[in-house]
């Protein structure tokens, strides 16, 4: 392998050596990639809710409203991790509640709550990380996924979120439910991941 490495680096160096000059690193002006409609003084939470709903993520601020929605969705087994007693009792009123996601239950658990690492207002994205989210599968395999987003962890822009990127081997931004348009360009939600994506802002 080390020879392959040396070969590649030496080919790259000899490819670049004859260049009379190399393109300098451009300075990225602050806000260069921000959409023109973005208002820097906007309320981050209001913008997040507006953008998230536009991409198909349901937003709740009241746990009982969120539980009511799950009830109308005929959810029968919910994974609620850790010490979220209020949610457990709300969901327990209409569904079986488990607090760890087990692979053997992949076909049975039809909703799961997982804590998020934050959110992005500009794009309406939820940020999950290995540190914040106990199980990658729990946030992905059930039809309903509800991320718990803390109001104080909403970043205004994509650039802000990148600047505050958590030191974590795996971070994922979730912007709406899983979708495809592979068949004749027709939009279908819920391909591999959640068909219904939601977040509960706490």
């Amino acid at each position: 392998m080390s020879t392959a490495r040396e070969n590649i680096f030496s080919s790259i160096r000899s490819a670049l050596a004859p260049l009379p000059s190399r393109t300098p690193r451009p300075e990225i002006p602050p806000g260069a990639a921000e959409p023109c409609w973005l208002d820097r003084s906007a309320d981050k939470m209001a913008l997040f809710v507006q953008r998230a709903e536009a991409t198909g993520t349901r937003c709740f601020t009241d746990p009982s409203a969120c539980a009511d929605w799950l009830r109308t969705q005929n959810v029968s087994k919910v994974c609620v991790p850790g010490p979220l007693e209020r949610l457990k009792s709300l969901c327990g009123a209409f569904a079986e509640v488990v607090d760890t996601y087990r692979r053997a239950d992949v076909d049975d658990i039809d909703a799961a709550f997982t804590p998020a690492a934050g959110a992005i207002a500009e794009s309406g994205s939820i940020i999950l990380s290995d540190e914040s989210t106990p199980d990658r599968l729990a946030a992905l395999a059930p039809w309903h996924h509800i991320a718990l987003v803390s109001r104080s962890e909403i970043h205004l822009t994509i650039a802000d979120a990148l600047a505050a990127h958590p030191d974590d081997p795996n971070v994922i931004w979730v912007t709406g439910p899983s979708k495809t348009a592979d068949v004749e360009g027709i939009l279908i939600q819920g391909v591999h991941g959640p068909g219904a994506q939601a977040c509960l802002i706490v």
Binding site: E122, V171, I172, W173, V174, P177
Partner: peptide, 8 residues
């Protein structure tokens, strides 16, 4: 604006 899943 962004694809649904952007993973790092």
């Amino acid at each position: 604006q962004l694809t649904v899943y952007t993973e790092f």
